[in-house]
Simulated assay, not measured.
Amino acid sequence: MKIKIVLTILISLSLVGCATTLTQQAMNVRDAVANTVSNCKFIGTVSGTSGWGNLAASVGIKSAKNQARNKAAQLGANRIVWTSIQGGYSPYVSGNAYECK
Rank of each mutant, 00 (worst) to 15 (best):
M1K: 02
S94K: 14
F42T: 03
Q86G: 03
S84A: 13
S90W: 11
S94Y: 07
Q25W: 00
L7A: 11
Q74I: 03
M27P: 00
S50V: 02
A77T: 14
G53Q: 06
L10F: 10
L10M: 10
I85G: 05
M1D: 04
A57M: 12
C100L: 09
A73R: 05
V16Y: 14
G48F: 13
V37G: 03
N66Q: 02
A64C: 04
S50H: 06
S12N: 02
V59C: 06
K41N: 12
I3K: 12
N28P: 00
S58L: 07
E99G: 02
G48S: 12
T36R: 13
N35M: 08
L13E: 05
W52R: 09
E99R: 10
V81G: 06
L55E: 13
G44H: 08
R69K: 13
V29R: 07
S50M: 07
L10Q: 00
Q74F: 05
A19H: 01
G87M: 15
T20G: 04
A97V: 08
F42Y: 15
M1W: 03
A57H: 07
Q86R: 12
P91V: 05
I5F: 05
A32G: 01
C18K: 07
K65E: 15
S63F: 09
G44W: 10
V29P: 11
